[in-house]
Design a binder for these strands. Structure first.
Length: 303
DNA sequence: GTATGTACCTGTTTGC
DNA sequence: TGCAAACAGGTACATA
């Protein structure tokens, strides 16, 4: 699943291969990836025809390509999306959804949007070359030099939600997905259900620093496997195999203390954590309602 | 504004 | 062998 490091690898690849290219034809092979486009597939294609790509930018997990008329091609890879730069003669990928035929720059190439599950998508951001208004609510990521750490700490400490939910809130901090959230929490020794307003400033800062380290490592490794001929994100950067301490390791011993890693359901997905290194918080007492609110996280498998 | 839950989507895995 | 259910999870949106 593409998270910030993978998306940044794609952005860098686009910058290298499609800058200055002009769109000569657009084929929308499935309507879903352009579902956010008011004009439908036809409007999407018409908005791109003849336009030249001037840059490749990123905010969190969103990418956009500013065009020579002030608009931008906005992209999100969702769960399974890929942006590939391919020669025209390359056979179509099984889940090829949108194809942009390009001229100039890397001569005679195509930019292909391939997406199995179609959670991702493409759209035209009118006047969005600088920062599309569709994603103006997305916060900067922790690796961004302009990320406001103190603002993040203050906002987290005003919220009663669990810290994992806050880490995944792209309005607070962008780029962190389920995998890196679990890894950062493991490294910080924090349970994902710890409420934001019951964390200290140093705890939040430490967690943020762990998130930075996890993502920087992944970025370094993703970058090394980058193929010069195409831009590829497939969720298997190699980082996952070697470096994960919590995510996907149910019942395996914790790398720090040997206690079996637990998996619990969380927001219709999974959380992995060490029950010893990351002790669950005590329930907040709610006056007059006895034991308080029910658990947000429940155990999937019995111990 | 905040908290919480759900729909969207399809290939693979698991269970009966 | 075949079918059905579970699972993966980022984001937008609905509801309270």
């Amino acid at each position: 699943m593409p998270e910030l490091p993978e998306v940044e690898v794609v952005r860098a690849g686009l910058e290298r291969h499609v800058l200055g290219a002009r769109v000569t034809r657009v084929d929308v092979l499935h309507p879903r990836p352009v579902r956010r486009e008011a004009g439908g597939p036809e409007g999407f294609s018409a908005a791109l025809a003849g336009r030249r790509v001037e840059a490749a930018r990123r905010r969190g997990k969103y990418l956009w390509l500013p065009l020579d008329n002030g608009d931008a091609l906005l992209a999100h890879l969702g769960m399974s999306g890929q942006l590939l730069v391919q020669p025209p003669e390359a056979p179509p990928e099984r889940h090829l959804r949108v194809r942009l035929v390009l001229e100039g720059a890397d001569e005679g190439r195509e930019l292909r949007f391939v997406d199995q599950r179609m959670f991702g998508g493409l759209s035209i951001a009118r006047g969005g070359a600088d920062l599309p208004e569709e994603i103006a609510h997305i916060a900067r990521d922790p690796l961004d030099p302009e990320f406001d750490e103190e603002e993040f700490v203050a906002r987290v400490r005003r919220r009663t939600s669990g810290i994992k939910r806050l880490l995944l809130d792209q309005g607070l901090v962008s780029g962190v997905g389920n995998i890196y959230a679990d890894e950062a929490l493991w490294r910080a020794g924090l349970h994902g259900e710890r409420p934001g307003d019951r964390l200290t400033g140093p705890q939040v800062r430490r967690l943020l620093e762990h998130a930075r380290v996890v993502m920087s490592d992944a970025l370094a490794q993703g970058g090394t496997s980058f193929d010069a001929l195409y831009v590829n994100v497939n969720g298997e950067s190699g980082y996952f195999d070697r470096s994960l301490h919590a995510y996907g390791r149910q019942d395996e011993p914790c790398d720090r203390c040997g206690t079996p890693i637990r998996r619990v359901a969380f927001m219709n997905r999974s959380s992995y954590f060490c029950p010893r290194c990351q002790p669950a918080p005590r329930r907040r007492r709610t006056p007059g309602i006895g034991t308080g609110t029910g658990p947000e996280i429940r155990t999937v498998a019995p111990d």
